[in-house]
Design a protein around this nucleic acid. Structure first.
Lengths: 340, 340
DNA sequence: CTGAAAGCGCTTACAG
DNA sequence: CTGAAAGCGCTTACAG
């Protein structure tokens, strides 16, 4: 098996000569643009195959109209969810031959976020991929309006008027989780919420409460504790819940990291899980199957979301006045494991 | 705050006009190549700043000699280590404005691996980043010799003759882990090894045995169990170790995922950790601080390794006969947590 | 020290 | 249906 040498790279020109046509016709065949005769098309395809031609993405990009460089703002890489999402976005972008430009923004200020986005665009980003809380922070701002590039968000709770969204139904998913617990006889269920800046976090709280109400249970204030999506915040929140008299028999956490914290709090007190306490997570990150006992959780289809959002971003026709925002809702899966 | 529009992007030409020089001089200032007068340099820099100019990477790439597209082969994305490494490589590559081309290869065949690499090069990869077991599989082959592109590997156990390597001292790290346990009085220590195709895995076994010998302990065959770096394999291996009479008082696992499996085996038997059993991992992945109890482990500087390897790859002078392989050894950190 | 010219490998209007 | 020409935004020899 021989490796292709760098200099000997096959160009569109070589294919054109081999097929006895112009480079432009080869381009037309590849991009399925323009009308090309069936015979010519076949001949060009044969030449491409014979020479093992692969278009040079860089050249394609230099001139192409479609966005090929994606900007992504992220925060909290230490979080398993963010780390996995970054990996998923990378894989999906690479699979489409796109370049990814990343920028961390740990602040909560709109100003700083906007300047991070500007930097990203200056560095060559031609489309913007967001996730909570950035999507919510930017939505509705004049800054976003002034951004002459397609924008999409994944994992938001609801469609947004000024950007494409790809998401799952967080309310229904959270409702399903709590109903699972109610079905198992739990009546006193603690909730560890996520940060209010994240719309998905709020939707999960809403779903939880809807399930309680639907089953004639009154959501009580002392059973609702605020968290921040972090492991440490989950641990703290669970400690407070377990200090109640009587303590809850189950804890619903708005993500896996906080659920892992709840497991720790239970272990510290020597509780027998799930007999003394049931715990649920959200996202089905890698840790869900590593902690003890394994977490009942909701699988969020992150890779599919990322791929879908990227497709919306790169297939969007080049800017031509205000586009109507698209919205896609992907399926979630409730996964029952040993923690309930 | 205003966003830059796509069409209005500032080019090298604009900077040149603003500074009253040629585009080539601007290029020379940016790339610090060629001799440019101090006054001119200052003027150009001012123009760059005034206009907020950022070079167009795509154009730079089309013509540039240095590799700007990195190929990476990976496997086992479900593994926390691999997922984090992918995220780390993405971040490091993006920080340098490089494009990452990914390809999964789940097989163990050299043929398939080689054809995956060829595909990657055909798609435009100009340099190749490897990790175990791929680095070991390719090293010494004629195929690698025929590859006209720089190659680097991270996380191998030893330098390799035909590629650059960036790694840590796995032998010393594993030795330190086992000595920590010996220092705490453990004399009967079980080992869950990783797959033999990974050189780092073998080095960890070696370090463990060296520690035993150094303290007059005889490595016994029944205490050494084979694993595969996966959680499930760690669980299985630990079950076998705990079935021994007498069982070990400590288990050293060659990575965190297998250590998590060992924790599960212990929990299933109702053992009190670390009193009844101490467990150690390796890598300090995200799960190390989520499992209960938190794992004593070795932090492998993955991001730094990735960054360093990428620098070696992209700063290498364009192919000019056989290069001597470079090797860098980064520091590890032994982290003691509640599992020991 | 500085620049005019050629070219990287494609695609996009525009002709024919 | 097919092609000649221009151009995307840079950098690289080569002059001066």
């Amino acid at each position: 098996m021989n490796a292709p040498t760098r200099k000997g790279r096959i160009t569109i020109q070589a294919v054109a000569e081999h097929a006895g046509v112009s480079a432009m016709t080869v381009s037309n065949v590849i991009n399925q643009t323009g009308r090309v005769g069936e015979a010519t098309r076949t001949r060009v395809r044969a030449a491409i195959k014979a020479l093992g031609y692969v278009p040079n993405l860089t050249a394609q990009r230099l001139v192409g109209a479609r966005p090929t460089r994606l900007g992504l703002i992220y925060r909290d890489v230490e979080s398993v969810f963010v780390s996995s999402t970054l990996a998923a976005v990378s894989v999906e972008a690479a699979a489409r031959g796109l370049q990814l430009l990343l920028r961390a923004d740990e602040g909560l200020s709109r100003e700083r976020l906007a300047s991070a986005v500007v930097d990203l665009m200056r560095s060559g980003a031609e489309a913007l991929l967001l996730m909570p809380p950035f999507a919510e922070m930017l939505s509705g701002t004049a800054f976003l309006q002034s951004l002459d590039a397609p924008v999409a968000a994944i994992a938001t709770a609801a469609p947004l008027p000024d950007m494409a969204t790809v998401r799952m139904d967080n309310v229904s998913a959270a409702r399903a989780v709590t109903e699972l617990l109610i079905g198992k006889g739990h009546r006193r269920i603690g909730l560890i919420a996520g940060p209010p800046q994240h719309s998905d976090s709020l939707a999960r709280v809403e779903g939880h409460r809807a399930a309680l109400r639907a089953h004639g249970l009154t959501p009580s204030a002392d059973l609702d504790v605020a968290g921040a999506f972090s492991f440490a915040s989950g641990l703290d929140a669970a400690e407070r819940l377990l200090d109640l008299h009587p303590p809850p028999t189950a804890i619903v956490a708005a993500n896996d990291d906080m659920a892992a914290g709840a497991l720790w709090a239970a272990h510290r007190r020597g509780l027998d899980l799930p007999r003394d306490l049931a715990v649920t997570g959200f996202d089905d990150t890698l840790i869900a199957t590593r902690v003890w006992p394994a977490l009942t959780t909701v699988r969020q289809p992150v890779s599919a979301m990322a791929g879908h959002a990227i497709d919306l971003l790169t297939r969007a026709p080049p800017t031509q006045g205000p586009r109507e925002a698209q919205d896609a809702v992907l399926e979630f899966t409730l996964i029952e494991r040993a923690s309930t």
